[in-house]
Design a protein around this nucleic acid. Structure first.
Lengths: 233, 233
DNA sequence: ACCAGCGGAGTGGTCCGACCACTACGGCGC
DNA sequence: GCGCCGTAGTGGTCGGACCACTCCGCTGGT
């Protein structure tokens, strides 16, 4: 009955909510240092072990950062910090869920590319071009993949929405791309990939959002369709 | 037994990666039960405390589920399980990042609504209608919000992409909506919201994807613009 | 006066052992 | 055969000890 100060679930869970609330309410600013583990534990009346579990959980979520010997700090709370865990989703997903993730990526990537076409700066466009040529100049799959990722990363950054860029980054996490990519490229899709990348680049140079959207959607859609085919039969 | 290998970072981090790898490689299936904390700790040659921190972290990420007195289990690894942490991002974001999140929502929600227009079943359409009328039949903001959330949730579910639905769910988490909603509706936006919801519903009934896309984009876009205005001047 | 080096205080990281709270299961009594 | 109950085993919590690292002020030399 006394809902005032009951123990909801585990004490660790309570500690997590407590710290989250402190940040949400502005009692803790990004970059600020927290009291020591021992202090925090004492304040909430729990053991240091339980408090450590709470801190560790928030560390993994990208909310806190523990510096050995120095203290615990709130991260900058940038999109990248918080959405890093998105990569875990991509890494652990399989089967139909992979297709769904690619569908989400197709939607976001096409929009991001369209925005980039309208906003991209000349210097950034040069960076995109650099990765495009580097990608076509080598046969090492590992290197190609790296430039492929950088190619799309530059475009996402040019769209001007850090949150979207962070999500796309997670959807292109190394292991995710590696798993899908390997099989896809084994079927001689290199040439097609090159054409698609070239098309995206042309649309960016032409500052043509709709062409960029179509090219990006088609690019991701090709992989999506291939993967869908892998699952069915 | 003794891994002469170098210890990358903390032992807890290593344990987290280890368990994640077990799942990614299929050594652990969804729903399967893990060895006991004491066992796992012994296998990796670390203390139970450190192993507990690893398990807690993965629990918060929605990868594992600990049942007191029973054991530790891998979750179903459904989109909802893994993307629950997405709500944390929404809750801790502020200022410009809120606008970015709304922009992402606008993109996904408009596409989801378009897909729903083409695929929605009659029974689900009836559910959407139910929430629409219930939303218009009350003046309690709390109740309106609840039906508003359910309205969009039904539509997202009808789009047939669980991953997208889970992301949208996170972007509409209670505290997120509550924070933005409150200010927005204070300015007498109820009438406008009703019109927009009605427009979305009409497009669904007409099975018109493009109309649905436009209506949804406009709906979210209105809030987005309002919020953008709140920040600037 | 200045600066390099050292050392100690304080922090997070790890480990241990004990106990509590809860669940599951099998045996006991009816 | 059924249901109750005890017990073994599990995760949850606690307190303390020690280690590894960082930071900063002090010391000693120049």
């Amino acid at each position: 009955m006394d809902e005032a100060a009951p123990q909801k679930g585990t004490v660790t869970q309570r500690a997590i909510e407590e710290i989250k609330a402190m940040i949400a309410e502005g009692r803790l600013e990004p970059g600020q240092r927290l009291p020591t583990e021992r202090d925090l534990a004492a304040r909430l009346g729990i053991s240091r072990s339980s408090m450590r579990e709470a801190i560790r959980a928030l560390t993994v979520l990208g909310v806190l950062e523990a510096r050995h010997g120095s203290g615990i700090y709130v991260t900058a709370l940038e999109a990248g910090d918080l959405l890093e865990t998105f990569g875990v989703v991509a890494d652990l997903s399989r089967g139909p869920r992979l297709v769904e993730l690619l569908e989400v990526r197709r939607i976001l990537e096409s929009t991001a590319t369209a925005l980039a076409a309208a906003r991209i700066s000349d210097s950034r466009l040069a960076a995109v071009e650099k990765h495009l040529t580097a990608m076509n100049a080598t046969d090492d799959p590992e290197e190609i993949l790296a430039h492929d990722l950088a190619f799309h990363r530059e475009i996402a950054a040019a769209a001007g929405n850090e949150t979207m860029a962070a999500i796309l980054e997670g959807l292109s996490s190394r292991t995710f791309r590696a798993r899908v990519w390997r099989g896809y490229q084994e079927e001689g899709a290199f040439a097609r990939t090159r054409r698609e990348h070239a098309a995206i680049h042309r649309a960016l140079v032409a500052r043509d959002p709709e062409a960029a959207r179509a090219a990006a959607a088609s690019h991701v859609g090709e992989v999506e369709e291939w993967l869908r085919g892998q699952l069915g039969p």
